[in-house]
């Protein structure tokens, strides 16, 4: 279960929104296989009946009083945005060309 192919790495990169180069794909295919082989040791532990821990401190349903706080300053937020227009974030087109 630990072999990982170049195609799989390319698929992972697509899912993770990383436009990897060909060199990176080769390099990561090799490295991820080694890392996965090493971490796969955890399958030796018999843990079928053990409940999973997602969080070290079991807290749930944390509420606070419904008090309004001032939000972030718009000018400060936009000052660090990559592109703005008309007091909004400007983003590239969201549809593919055939959908547009």
């Amino acid at each position: 279960m630990t072999a990982i192919t170049r195609q799989e790495v390319a698929h992972l990169a697509k899912l993770a929104r990383l436009d990897l180069t060909a060199t990176e794909l080769d390099h990561y295919a090799e490295q991820l296989a080694v890392i996965l082989q090493s971490v796969a040791r955890i399958s030796e532990v018999a843990a079928d009946d053990i409940p999973p821990t997602s969080h070290p401190v079991p807290v749930e349903n944390v509420f606070r009083d419904d008090i309004a706080y001032p939000g972030l300053d718009r000018a400060e937020v936009f000052a660090s945005a990559p592109a703005t227009q008309d007091d909004r974030f400007r983003v590239p087109r969201i549809l593919d060309e055939e959908q547009a």
């Binding site: 279960m1 971490v39 955890i42 399958s43 532990v45 843990a47 053990i50 409940p51 999973p52 821990t53 997602s54």
Partner: peptide
């Protein structure tokens, strides 16, 4: 096999 099992090991 991976994330689920790791969370169980975390409990242990």
């Amino acid at each position: 096999a991976y994330y689920g099992q790791a969370q169980k090991v975390r409990t242990l």
